[in-house]
Computed example of a mutant assay.
Amino acid sequence: MNAFQPVHGIIFDKDGTLFDFTTTWEAWARAFLLRLADGEEARAGILGKAIGFAFETSTFHKTSLVIAGTAAEIGAALAPHVPDLTSDKLLKIINEEAAHAPQTEAVPLAPFLDDLRARGLKLGVATNDAEAPARAHLDAAGVVAHFDVIAGYDSGHGGKPAPGQLLAFCAATGLSPDNVIMVGDSLHDLRAGRAAGMRTLAVLTGMADTKDLAPHADAVLPDIGHIPAWLDQQA
Results as ranks from 00 to 15, higher is better:
Asp129Ser: 13
Ala151Arg: 14
Tyr153Asp: 10
Ala140Lys: 12
Ala134Phe: 07
Asp139Tyr: 07
Arg135Leu: 12
Phe147Thr: 03
Ser155Asn: 11
Ala140Val: 02
Lys122Glu: 15
Lys122Gln: 15
Gly152Ser: 08
Ala134Gln: 07
Ala141Met: 03
Val125Ala: 01
Val143Gly: 12
Pro133Asn: 09
Ser155Pro: 04
Asp154Val: 01
Asn128His: 05
Lys122Trp: 11
Tyr153Cys: 06
Ala132Cys: 03
Ala141Ile: 03
Thr127Ile: 03
Leu123Arg: 08
Val143Gln: 04
Leu123Phe: 02
Gly152Met: 10
His146Asp: 11
Leu138Trp: 06
Val144Ile: 11
Leu138Val: 05
Lys122Asp: 04
Gly152Tyr: 08
Ala151Phe: 07
Tyr153Trp: 15
Asp139Pro: 02
Ala130Cys: 14
Gly152Cys: 01
Ala126Glu: 00
Val149Tyr: 15
Pro133Lys: 06
Ala136Pro: 05
Glu131Gly: 05
Val144His: 01
Leu123Asn: 05
Ala134Asp: 08
Tyr153Gly: 09
Ala136His: 14
Val125Ile: 08
Ile150Arg: 10
Ala145Val: 13
Ala126Asn: 13
Val143Phe: 05
Ala136Tyr: 10
Ser155Leu: 14
Thr127His: 00
Ile150Pro: 06
Gly156Glu: 12
Ala140Trp: 00
His137Ile: 14
Asn128Ile: 03
Ala136Lys: 00
Ile150Asn: 01
Gly156Asn: 09
Gly152Glu: 14
Glu131Lys: 15
Asn128Tyr: 02
Ala130His: 09
Ala134Asn: 04
Arg135Val: 10
Ile150Thr: 07
Leu123Ser: 02
Phe147Met: 06
Ala136Glu: 07
Pro133Gly: 07
Gly142Thr: 12
Phe147Pro: 08
Ala136Arg: 11
Ala130Asp: 15
Thr127Ser: 08
Phe147Tyr: 06
Leu123Val: 00
Asn128Gly: 04
Val149Ala: 13
Asp129Lys: 03
Val149Thr: 14
Asp154Ser: 02
Val149Leu: 15
Ala145Leu: 12
Thr127Met: 01
Gly156Ser: 06
Ala132Asn: 03
Ala145Asn: 14
Asn128Lys: 05
Ser155Ala: 13
Leu138Ala: 11
Ser155Thr: 11
His146Ile: 04
Val144Asp: 10
Ala140Phe: 02
Val144Met: 12
